Simulated scan of single mutants.
Amino acid sequence: MPTRIAALGYHQPEHRLTNEDLSGMVETSDAWIRQRTGIVTRHIAREESVADLATAAAGKALAAAGLGPAEIGQVVVATCSAIDRVPSIAAEVAGRLGIQGAVAFDLNNGCAGFTTALAVADHAVRAGAARHALVVGAEKMSDVTDYTDRSTCVLLGDGAGAAVVGPAAQPGIGPVVWGSDPTARDAVRLRGDWHPRFAQDGQKVFRWATTALAPLAREACERAGYAPGELGAIVAHQANLRIVEALARQLDAPGAVVATDVVTSGNTSAASVPLALAKLVERGEVTPGTPTLLFAFGGGLSWAGQVVRCP
């Protein structure tokens, strides 16, 4: 059974943390941050939890799809920043939205969490295990940020994005290309007793992302039956503007809109791809049916990506 993304939704906290704000907290500057990351501002949740962010985004996606809670058979929340382990954030979202009887679970694949979860939902719907699935990427990275470390605190933000996956007449979600390189698993870390702190080997991640990812992204295009030049949009994990732009150049897709939500949202880990995609659709920068590459990467080191048609 072919599948598609039927609808999207997103949510970000109202409070914004600017580069100027950060320059008063650590030894940094607006110019230093922009030059190295491209980030200007990021959203920070003061009172909202990961479950609050996820539920808000999921509710919007469900409403946009025109579906009731009884029509959802699977809820998957991709997150690496949730404090609560049991019940899962997915179970919390399902309960708040009145979704009864659906399988609900969290998935942690770092920044590649949403595209991994999207593939899991795609497989479940295609196999007939669920009629519709609700997939959410939600992070409160401010909970795990060390605001004394200028190399990481300038990167991270909070937010959530969601998608409803359902059956389709024509394929709308392409085959996933996913994997990991566990020999480099320590390059991105979130370890220790709660309260852990995010850490990474920034140079190692940058070199890997700008050299290893393009062939994998091309493979995702090929498996979906597209040449990169046929893409209408590229939505990569919003880790760093330099990485996003490098991947787009290497793919050689001159007609594609390239999502750059990182500039105003920062790195929101598993939330970054659905946030950026939902905003492109909301602003009308892509039209329904536009072939769009989703590709995310991060801790593990892991990656997952697929070509989808925009709702």
Rank of each mutant, 00 (worst) to 15 (best):
108 N>R: 14
58 A>Q: 08
45 A>T: 04
77 V>C: 03
43 H>G: 00
85 R>P: 00
54 A>N: 13
16 R>K: 11
87 P>E: 02
54 A>K: 14
28 T>E: 09
26 V>D: 03
34 R>H: 10
11 H>V: 01
56 A>Q: 12
87 P>M: 05
107 L>K: 02
48 E>G: 00
32 W>V: 03
60 K>C: 00
71 E>N: 05
46 R>V: 10
55 T>W: 15
58 A>T: 04
80 C>M: 12
40 V>D: 14
67 L>H: 14
112 A>F: 12
58 A>S: 09
6 A>P: 00
111 C>T: 11
28 T>A: 04
69 P>I: 01
100 Q>F: 08
68 G>D: 06
87 P>N: 10
74 Q>G: 07
95 G>K: 13
46 R>W: 00
70 A>N: 06
27 E>S: 14
87 P>H: 07
56 A>E: 15
113 G>L: 07
10 Y>K: 11
115 T>H: 03
70 A>T: 13
44 I>R: 15
113 G>F: 04
113 G>K: 08
110 G>W: 01
87 P>Y: 10
82 A>T: 06
35 Q>C: 02
35 Q>M: 09
106 D>G: 09
23 S>K: 09
16 R>A: 08
24 G>H: 11
55 T>H: 10
90 A>W: 04
49 S>L: 02
40 V>I: 08
20 E>S: 07
31 A>P: 04
40 V>K: 15
39 I>H: 13
41 T>N: 09
50 V>Q: 00
95 G>F: 06
95 G>T: 03
94 A>F: 10
37 T>W: 07
46 R>L: 12
73 G>V: 13
39 I>S: 14
121 A>Y: 09
